[in-house]
Design a protein around this nucleic acid. Sequence first.
RNA 1: GCGGGCGUGGUGGAAUUGGCAGACACGCUAGACUUAGGAUCUAGUGCCGAGAGGCGUGAGAGUUCGAGUCUCUCCGUCCGCACCA
Length: 825
Amino acid sequence: MTDRYNGKGSFEEWAKEWAMEDRYNFKTIEKKWQSIWDEEKAYKVDIDKNKEKYYVLVEFPYPSGAGLHVGHPRSYTALDVVARKKRMQGFNVLYPMGFDAFGLPAENYAIKTGVHPAVSTKANIENFTRQLKSIGFSFDWDRAFNTCDPEYYKWTQWMFIKLFEKGLAYKSKMAINWCPSCKVGLANEEVVNGCCERCGAQVVRKDKEQWMVAITKYADRLINDLDDLDFIERVKAQQVNWIGRSEGAELDFDLTDAQGNPLDGKKLKVFTTRPDTAFGVTYMVMAPEHEFVTALMPRFENPSEVQAYVEATAKKSELQRTMDDSKTGVELKGIKARNPFNGALIPVFISDYVLTGYGTGAIMAVPAHDQRDYDFAKAFNLPIIQVLAGGDISEKAWEEDGEHINSGFMDGMNKEDAMKAAVEFAEKGGFGKSKVNFKLRDWVFSRQRYWGEPIPMVYCEHCGWQPVPEDQLPLTLPEVPDYLPNDNGDSPLAKATDWVNTTCPKCGAHARRETDVMPNWAGSSWYFLRYCDPHNDKAFASKEALDYWMNVDWYNGGMEHTTLHLLYSRFWHKFLYDCGYVPMKEPYQRRTSHGMILAENGEKMSKSRGNVINPDDIVNNYGADSFRLYEMFIGPFDQVAMWSEDSLNGVYRFVGKIYNLFRKVTKNAKASAKDIQIMHKTILEVTERIDQMKFNTAVSSLMTYVNHLSSLDEIAPELYENLLLLMCPFTPHLAEEMWARMGHTTLAIKEPWPKGDAKLAEENTVTYAVQICGKMRGTIDLPKDAPREEVEKAALSLENVKRQLEGKEIRKVIVVPNKIINLVA
RNA sequence: GCGGGCGUGGUGGAAUUGGCAGACACGCUAGACUUAGGAUCUAGUGCCGAGAGGCGUGAGAGUUCGAGUCUCUCCGUCCGCACCA
């Protein structure tokens, strides 16, 4: 057992020691307390129904080979501060850590070196764990796990099967990013400016069967349920924006031959947010990928021209397609569409400005009131009919509102009435209805990769896709000869033929396993549930554990995950809720986001720039406590911050100052009224500012308090001990060490959080600012809550005030109690 | 283009309901001390001015006894999304 008193049992013995030279030695202090916390399992937590729970969560890291970045500890320290304070306030706090261990870097490393991803990942996790422990975070390490552990991904697979059983996971042909040089399917994150991240070749689109997850079914709930959550505004806004709900109508336009005769009853369905502008439709556009293009090919008078355009579009990357806003397209000669509102026969085009993935993949074009349609109409010399009054449509489209004109039954109406009338008209005529559309698309869930969770599905000729039976989970990753995909873009798993060939769980006939794996967003979609009960082998977590711990009270993570992990996991959780597996519909009550840490010159830290700060160096040179405190003091938590070695050094000096203050602590010294007042003020400020996530100003408060203590000749023990307790969340090692030196045999981190008394924190004299016509002319000190007349009298007796008021008459006196007096002359 | 931020000394940044702008820290200046340490301590530090005083929160206007804070217009900057019909 580590000796927490270094052989000294009392304050007196320590005080004697201090007569000799003694300098702050963070290395021995930090090592000592880390082993004591470890030995005593000081941060282990269990269900305790007598205590109120508090679940604090930070996004678990991907254990990269580069090790911890100084950005990680910003988030981890902030929530460690929260967790430690909450614990001291009597809450039963769950603050867990684990690793999001599946992912591309380990696989790329394996392709390069042949080292199995499991091997490099394990080494990286060990390194991360060592680094995290060296900073003194209060994680309950007994709950740690990683997502590539079969005991864990067994449940990820189990949940996928539930998605499949409920019809939310389905197989569909989708265009993926394909690198023709590496012969590999790329994740979106691997495509940089339309090129392969690894070899720089142009990425093309390739159709492939993909597992999809129907997140769009939850689109409305993902927006609406944000209302009751305590997420920072920009997170909410970004999610709402990404889901992109828009209200409008779906309308059917009959397709005809060139003469206007019906075409096999085919109707072109379009989505529009402005059905009220239907009288302004002068042509129709389909995406080149639209199914009708192939289906109607024999009807076209210009099939080769159409075919050429379709092929040219397919070759374009998404990027090229969006970069270029000049309008191209081909008219589908030989067919027309009939506008159901006015019976007009109008031409039909294909153009790549219409996207296949949004709405119906086809639009009704209203060039007078949509700039894109306007540009296209100008390029192809198409008529432009104004139906909303206003603007000058000879110049550009009029996209504002206006009274309806040239619109038959809608003439004279405003937008709202016309919208209603248009939908009613369409409904009556049986060619349309109101409709809500989302930008959000279903989640592409397949990766042609090795280092991920195998998708637990089997394909049988007779029975179709069948899930792997539950008692066969986990379906573990097989060994493969190498980690490269084959020419067809199949996952490396396709090479494990013994594994791939299996029997159908339903009929027993020969069948093949799915060889794609899950994206790395799968494992992170429910990890916060596993922390509640990480060793359970009967369920992903027990009902009891979930009922007690969920939901997460405070979740902090990067802004870059707002539309990925955060959205996916909210969806995933809602699905589990619908199945009755989790007790509440939302996983996270409060979501905050930390700002990035930039290098000293304001640039991003990156390996190529060579400006990366290694946390190990900081811990070695300044100590974990100074590192932690600096991360909190660096600036507003939610904003970008620049690393500064000078500022770090300032914080280091502050920490040393607290150590040295011990010298002045005198057992029988009495705290003055002023001392007590400042102490209570500090307690209140620090407490409040931690809750408000204003960690930088919480530290300022502590500095102000320490400056006051430094000015005293003798420090009463109560003043110093309360400082130590307030420092516990920020600099736990130092606080613990000095607490022991004060003669305590308990752990400081287990002490109750100091209680601030608002009454005692008040000053009994106040300083009034004296203003004349709003200009500061002096100050006066008065007892708190002095009567108005007294304030006025005192203000008027100031020399400067007398001089300023000479020859003027006071017209009005404004007194703000205990703050300001303004004499208006 | 749409959505969300942000703009305060030489620097990072403070500032409940509008109420002493610049807390706290870095840096800098002067001094003290020294067992020369990544020291420590004391004093000073928004700008102009010798002073009284004046000017100051991106620019301009407005509301108010009083505006960094509220309203309008404009400028700059960062982030996210983007041919989303």
